[in-house]
């Protein structure tokens, strides 16, 4: 038996909304330690990795007797989650050898209980081993700032060049009709931590990435006030949104490299 009771359905709604356009079918791997999801987009350029830890406060109850994989169509899941109120408590439930996943939405005042079942799918997904490495550069910034940068620069071109150095980070785009550059200076003196821009630098990095994917990742902006970008030259960037009281959602994007 698998049963996970999440205090805020809005968290799961936001996660699925941010994933469903790039990753249409995905396996939720459930174990006693929590729920993970790893999926690649159809072109194998972008990957998402979600981790929701069972021992965090976001789960009121969590039970998973046996490791199970729940193959779900995320577009369908998003439709089901739209039936939940943002303040509803949501329970996910499945048997040990599941064919269906049950969603139960309990309204805060206890007056409304909704139950939906969806059929599970057999998804043949290729799991990649992601090495736990130290990155040359880790930039932390307000998530809305990163969203704005990606959105602004995508007006002019398909690729952004991210240039991390000790003063800060530069984002540049050069398209056929024009070019743009946004310079973010390191700023760790502002009052609120979530408004800070910080750059942890072991080595400077200059790397290009497809804006189409970065813009898609920023659909996760509402999950977190901050986002971190981890970069090493000639390796995929990691865009991480922490999820309070649950874990994190990470996106990996393969770089554009001059062949």
């Amino acid at each position: 038996m698998f049963e996970a009771k999440m205090l805020q359905s809005s968290v799961l709604k936001k996660i699925i909304e941010s994933l469903k356009d790039l990753f249409s079918d995905a396996n939720f791997d459930c174990s006693s330690s929590g729920i993970t999801l790893q999926d690649m987009d159809s072109s194998h350029v972008a990957l998402c990795y979600l981790k929701l830890r069972s021992d965090e406060e976001g789960f009121e109850d969590y039970r998973c007797d046996r490791n199970i994989t729940l193959g779900v169509n995320l577009v369908l899941m998003s439709k089901i989650l739209k039936c939940a109120g943002n303040d509803d408590v949501i329970t996910l439930r499945a048997e040990d050898e599941p064919n269906i996943l049950t969603f139960i939405f309990d309204s805060k005042n206890g007056e409304r209980v909704s139950k939906y079942d969806i059929k599970l799918m057999e998804i043949d997904s290729e799991l990649l081993g992601i090495p736990d490495t130290e990155y040359s550069c880790v930039v932390k910034m307000p998530s809305h700032e990163f969203q704005r940068i990606c959105s602004n620069l995508s007006q002019l071109g398909d690729s952004v060049t991210v240039d991390c150095h000790k003063e800060g980070v530069d984002f540049k785009v050069a398209g056929e009709q024009g070019s743009g550059a946004i310079k973010l200076k390191q700023n760790t003196t502002v009052d609120k931590e979530e408004d800070q821009v910080s750059v942890e630098l072991n080595e400077a990095v200059t790397q290009s990435f497809a804006l189409k994917f970065l813009c898609a990742f920023t659909k996760a902006t509402s999950l977190s006030d901050t986002v971190s970008l981890s970069l090493t030259q000639d390796t995929p960037i990691v865009v991480e949104y922490p999820i309070a009281q649950h874990g994190y959602l990470r996106f990996y994007l393969a770089p554009k490299i001059e062949e």
Partner: peptide, 14 residues
């Protein structure tokens, strides 16, 4: 022109 790489180049199958 810069070429888009694939994740399979960086991460191995588990």
């Amino acid at each position: 022109i810069k070429g888009q790489t694939s994740l399979n180049r960086f991460f191995s199958k588990q």
